[in-house]
Amino acid sequence: MNARKLPILLTIIVLAAAGFATLVFLGKITWFSEQPPLEFLRNMDLQFKSIPQSGNTYFSDRKSLRDPVEGTVARGEQPYQLGMGDVDLAESVNVDPNLPKTEFVMARGQNRFNVFCAACHNYDAKSQSKLVKRGSWLGIPDLTREQTVALSNARIFHIMSAGQNLMPSYADKISVTDRWAIIRYLRTLQGVEGVASIAPAVTTQAQ
């Protein structure tokens, strides 16, 4: 590098730095920082209350969301009574509410299926999800195979609610009605209940 080019280079660097700083201060680009943001006036930003992810200094285990007292159930919650092994009981305990076969129910079933099941079983239930293609987890069954089609609704409800071998339970995440909607939708994927049987979408429109 010869001496005459140095000032030019320096000018460019300084200009670039100044430009970057201006853009950051104008909020046009972000300044990635691992430090908590500056707060000059804290006002009432942090109040003495428990919010998610805040931790809690009052209890020794620092949990702000307290575990429920043993044997109690939170309001509105419908825990699933059976364990993974109670397959025989499943048929009698789980009564299919027979949700209407409307597009709305199908759409709900599809939505919940895509959220909670598609990660492993894929959107078409044929188990070629990204996870399986990547080779991370083999042994996820194809839900459209005969063996699964033969399972009763109550049994599939049981698998969803209590889990089966390595498949985890989803009872705490999907509401009971949603679980039946998923089964409705799963049956159409399996071709058991044809998509043609879907009633027109009158009920889903706002009046």
């Binding site: 700083a21 201060f25 909020g27 300044w31 990635f32 943001p37 500056l38 000059f40 006036l41």
Partner: peptide, 19 residues
């Protein structure tokens, strides 16, 4: 600059990514 813009959320908060 820091005083005027640095307390603004769009400068100070945007881009915050803790470890």
């Amino acid at each position: 600059l820091v005083g005027f813009f640095g307390v603004r959320n769009d400068v100070a908060d945007v881009g915050y990514r803790p470890v």
